[in-house]
Simulated assay, not measured.
Amino acid sequence: MRYPFLGWTGQTIGVTAPSSGLPEALHPLLEEATLRLRDRQMAVEIGQTVWAQEKAQSASAETRADELNHMLRNPEIDAIIPPFGGERAIDVLPYLDFAQLPEKWILGYSDISTLLFAITVKSGIATAHGPSFLEMRSEEWDETTTAWRRVLATPTGGTVTQWTSTSYQTKWNHAERPARYMYHVDAETQWKALDQTRSEATGRLLGGCLETIRHLAGTPYGDVRKFWQTQIDEEPILWYFEASEASATDIHRSLMQMVLAGWFDQASGILFGRTAAGQTVEDYTLLDVYETLSEKTGVPIFYDLDIGHQPPQLTLVNGALATIRIQGKDSRLDMTFR
Rank of each mutant, 00 (worst) to 15 (best):
L6I: 05
D195L: 01
L134M: 13
E200H: 10
A118L: 00
Y168V: 09
V15R: 03
A89G: 13
V121K: 02
R214M: 13
L293F: 11
T63C: 11
A52S: 15
V317N: 09
I81H: 12
K122Y: 03
L314Y: 14
L30Y: 09
V15H: 11
S244W: 06
T292G: 10
T292E: 15
F84M: 11
G157Q: 04
K226C: 04
L35I: 10
V92T: 08
E211S: 11
H174T: 08
L96P: 06
D233S: 13
K192A: 14
Q190Y: 09
V185A: 12
G222Y: 03
I270P: 00
F264H: 04
V50I: 07
Y181W: 07
S123A: 10
S165A: 14
V121M: 01
D142W: 05
G203A: 04
A175K: 13
C209S: 15
A261W: 02
S138T: 11
K329C: 07
V15Y: 07
R225T: 11
A25Y: 03
L287S: 13
S113A: 07
M258T: 04
Y95A: 07
D304W: 03
D97N: 14
I46G: 14
F302P: 14
I326W: 02
G273L: 06
P82N: 14
L134C: 02
D111R: 00
G222L: 01
L314F: 13
E87P: 03
A33M: 04
E176P: 06
I80Y: 12
I251P: 06
L316H: 08
L115A: 09
I125P: 08
L210V: 07
M136R: 12
A65R: 00
G308L: 07
R204D: 13
P75L: 01
E24S: 15
F302N: 07
D91A: 10
E62I: 13
Q100L: 12
I77K: 02
V151D: 10
A43I: 03
H184P: 05
G108D: 12
G207E: 04
D283E: 15
G222R: 03
A59Q: 02
G207V: 05
V160P: 09
W263A: 04
L6D: 14
R332T: 06
A153Q: 05
S60P: 00
Q257S: 12
W141F: 15
E76C: 03
E200N: 10
A243F: 13
A320P: 11
L210N: 14
S132N: 15
F241Q: 05
E45N: 09
Q57C: 09
V299T: 02
L238R: 01
S20T: 07
A246M: 09
K122C: 15
P300Y: 04
I301N: 10
G21H: 10
G308M: 08
D288N: 14
A59R: 01
H252L: 13
G85N: 05
L93Y: 03
P23F: 12
R2G: 15
V259P: 05
F264G: 01
L134N: 08
T336K: 08
L72F: 07
F98N: 02
Y221K: 00
